[in-house]
């Protein structure tokens, strides 16, 4: 049993479980699955600064902050108690490509050769962590949702705007990973 839990979970286990979060949130409180809105609530709670977009009663949405708090707890639990301590099994093609840029440490889910406090203020690290993060926050709010709100919840309820958003996410990701990221990783 522990071995099943501690080895990486297959897509056909993880995917359906994530799919079940959609009806669970609806049934336990009429909530639509979405994560990026939590960052809007944080803005509204901490720094509304008179901006109309943040002038709403964020306390009515506080469930979303409890939800992301749970995500952090779950990640801690999984890492501390359900891990098998093995490096990530990376596709040989990707490993070969990353080797060119000196990325060879596959110990963590996040590559330690790129994402570390020491790298934060290098040009490469700043682009990947700070500029990348900014784009995630700005883009998801501009699009009205992220992977959870549009790709999972939106597609599950058959909404065309969510399909358009999901396709845009994928196009942006393909462009970055295949055409722009190589230049950043070379820095």
């Amino acid at each position: 049993m522990m071995e099943v839990l501690s080895s990486p979970w297959k897509w056909y286990v993880a995917g359906p479980l994530i799919g079940l979060i959609v009806p669970t949130l609806l049934v336990i409180g009429n909530k639509t699955f979405g994560i990026s809105a939590s960052m809007r609530h944080i803005c509204a709670a901490c720094a509304p600064a008179g901006v109309k977009f943040f002038k709403y009663d964020w306390k009515k949405e506080v469930w979303n902050l409890y939800f992301v708090g749970g995500i952090i707890i779950g990640a801690i639990v999984a890492t501390l108690f359900l891990g098998n301590g093995k490096p990530i099994d990376v596709s040989p093609k990707l490993a070969e490509e990353l080797a060119q840029y000196g990325i060879a440490n596959f110990d963590g889910l996040v590559p330690r050769d790129l994402f570390s406090w020491e790298n934060l203020l290098t040009l490469k690290g700043f682009l990947l962590m700070v500029v990348g993060g900014f784009l995630v926050g700005f883009g998801s709010r501009y699009a009205g949702g992220c992977t959870s709100g549009h790709a999972i919840m939106g597609l599950s309820s058959l909404q065309l705007p969510s399909l358009i958003a999901t396709i845009s996410f994928m196009v942006g990701g393909f462009l970055m990973a295949n055409f722009l990221l190589p230049f950043i990783l070379k820095l």
């Binding site: 926050g137 700005f138 883009g139 699009a143 958003a165 393909f174 990973a177």
Partner: peptide, 21 residues
């Protein structure tokens, strides 16, 4: 916004390797 914001989000997603969750 779903197209423009979506594209920007996609760029950030591939850089950070993470969406908000």
């Amino acid at each position: 916004g779903q197209i423009i914001g979506g594209l920007l989000f996609g760029l950030g997603w591939a850089m950070t390797g993470a969406c908000p969750g």
